[in-house]
Design a protein around this nucleic acid. Sequence first.
DNA 1: ATAATTGCAAATGCTTTGCTTGTGA
DNA 2: TCACAAGCAAAGCATTTGCAATTAT
Lengths: 136, 136
Amino acid sequence: MKSDIENKCIEKGVRLTEQRKLVAKIMSESHDHPDVDELHKRVSKFDSKISIATVYRTVKLFEEAGIISKHDFKGTKARYEQASHEHHDHLIDINTGEITEFVNQDIERLQEKVAEKLGYKLIDHRLELYGSKIKK
Amino acid sequence: MKSDIENKCIEKGVRLTEQRKLVAKIMSESHDHPDVDELHKRVSKFDSKISIATVYRTVKLFEEAGIISKHDFKGTKARYEQASHEHHDHLIDINTGEITEFVNQDIERLQEKVAEKLGYKLIDHRLELYGSKIKK
DNA sequence: ATAATTGCAAATGCTTTGCTTGTGA
DNA sequence: TCACAAGCAAAGCATTTGCAATTAT
């Protein structure tokens, strides 16, 4: 059956090819934040001839359609995740690279306030926490 | 006389060359957030033979010594500013690229709390607001 | 003196693109 | 059918690096 992302492509009128369906499927099933290289590795298991240029073009296309999100965390290549309904931010483990998602409405509200106070309408933001696990 | 950054270099035992002194001087006097290209342009007015490779090496050196800070804002090349005593975050005007610095202790505190709740010690963070000016 | 730094150009790493062939609606 | 997409290799862009010549301590 069709993957989540494939359905969103149909919704948005994004033309589907075999390669795009495959990237859609893999991204739909990935619950981490793979970079393009990793994504290319994953799709290559199902289509050994898919070009990395196609993967680059596809993630860009999906991102521009608002179907997936791109993140440029410090010191890493661009990573992608399925765009989710609820907005969230990220905490990155500086030792392992592990990513935890979180939502904090208080911070969200304060950001708007800060922007407003400075005479701006908040359009977008980036909040990343970098930390190390506390052993208990 | 010696620039702020030049003094910090002496403090930290960073070897000073003519080129480094010049970059130090320009960065000390710059109250914006120039990228390497812009910085190279500015120092070239005083030393037309300075290589951009040297500028790259110098900002990297200063950054590793904690004397200047590097920022990778969305969709731009790396930009630098003199490391300042008080921590602050940035609001970027999405239309003009203009940068406004701000501090918000409530947000800072909440970030620590979020990290803690997730089992992490907060080591570093990145908070950037992207907005457009409200015309009044 | 001599270990570190410069300038240059070549190399790098990630990402994009031109072009020819293939393909989805 | 035929505008658009894929694959390949080449190009692009920011940044780094090897090497021979120069310089700071």
